[in-house]
Design a protein around this nucleic acid. Structure first.
Lengths: 233, 233
DNA sequence: AAGCGTCTTTGATCAAGATCAAAGCATATT
DNA sequence: AATATGCTTTGATCTTGATCAAAGACGCTT
């Protein structure tokens, strides 16, 4: 990879914990790679995997039951870190929901670099703890929330996560954004079927809470109502 | 705390990463505490919390929606680490499912100790990554599995986790064990109601796959069948 | 602009699990 | 031993979301 110092996620990715000279070393290990929408970066059970920083685009982590049922267990955005360092193999599949660009390291080279850099490990620890909190929040959604609550919660979450642009958070929440996934993927995130997702969208649209000018665009008209529907106190 | 070197979880808890002299320092910071079943060690949103190693017993982490619905997001056993280091506050409630004993640290003292000990942080990172994998596995259960599959999966998991006794794993799986939780808690782990849990127990009992000599005891008669029901390939 | 393929919405029906209600059981109490 | 108390199981019914099926809408290609 040519130059980390000009990387758009330089200050948000785990690399932010590194000094310029350390970054130089890391940059020798990584290489940029473009991924097309739908393409898989990492297969579950893959024995020779990689880890990566997301530079641009949206990726999903998914687990698949043997009979084909798929659950999306995480949606990852620019500056997020994907892959399973220190592990035998990745327990989940990592694929692109949109065209994306990532900064890839072989796991062995990343692992040994990390071993020498406690700051990097510290950053990774913080991220893992945050991821864990998010995963558990989502468990609550999957275990206890109704279909309408799930949809509303996802929209609130997306309007939050998609709003961070570049290094500084712009408007805290977006009232208009493009869905980075199709209806089937929304269903696989929320533990619902595509028909139920569609019906719930129609429902809150008819209530005037949101608009859906086309398949991918969401406009939030009544954020407070949407939050109420999401079950946020 | 008097003596870490005789602690029953000494070699399995995160403390295992420490040298004897470091352990001496840590032992000054922690203190042992007994918790009764049902008692809460840590409330969500608690501003002055603690972290702890579990010495004995079973604890649960739970998240509560404002209207009272509760989802149990993790079940933790001896040698597991609970609490949210480096965080502002704990996002979940930690309480005892059985009488338990824990080794407690104030978060501030633990955090500053951890800052000086990369090995400890490394151990914590490994644990967090493992926890994350388990949380995501459970998301798949909550999002995609049927009631029967959920019950079977839980029984397999319990027969595995409860079998580790002392420092060495004894028989890899237990075919007879005591449930550390009641039916309502099982429901809150699996995203079901207590009635559905009861009916599914009855169902696989009538099929001869398990026996339930009393409320708390489970005997697995046909492990391979149980695994098949759990949806394990 | 017409035609094709894919994704999404809508409709009709079904089923798994939730809810409401009551009866069993086991342990603790007097 | 008799009785209260708190789980747990079982039964009857209802609801939410799944499934099956078809029609629309949108983007792409020619």
């Amino acid at each position: 990879m040519s130059d980390c110092s000009t990387c758009v996620v330089r200050n948000r990715a785990i690399c932010a914990s590194l000094e310029p000279d350390e970054l130089q070393v890391l940059s020798k290990l990584g290489r940029k790679r473009k991924i097309k929408r739908g393409e898989t970066l990492l297969w579950e059970g893959d024995p020779a995997p990689v880890v990566a920083n997301i530079i641009d685009g949206v990726l999903k982590l998914s687990m698949n039951l043997h009979d084909g049922r798929e659950q999306i267990v995480s949606v990852m955005y620019a500056s997020d870190f994907v892959g399973r360092p220190f592990g035998k193999e990745s327990p989940y599949r990592v694929s692109a929901m949109t065209d994306a660009e990532v900064c890839v390291f072989t796991r062995s080279s990343f692992d040994s670099f990390a071993k020498e850099h406690p700051d990097l490990q510290n950053k990774l620890l913080h991220r893992s703890l945050d991821e864990l909190d998010r995963a558990r929040e989502w468990m609550t959604l999957l275990g206890k929330k109704s279909a309408t609550e799930r949809i509303a919660t996802l929209l609130i979450e997306l309007s939050d996560r998609l709003s961070v642009d570049g290094c500084s958070p712009t408007s805290r929440y977006l009232d208009r954004f493009e869905l980075p996934m199709d209806r089937q993927q929304i269903a696989d995130i929320l533990g619902l079927t595509i028909e139920t997702v569609s019906r719930q969208f129609t429902r809150i649209r008819k209530q005037g809470i949101i608009d859906l000018p086309d398949r991918r665009t969401v406009i939030i008209n009544e954020r407070s109502l949407l939050k109420a529907v999401a079950g946020v106190a």
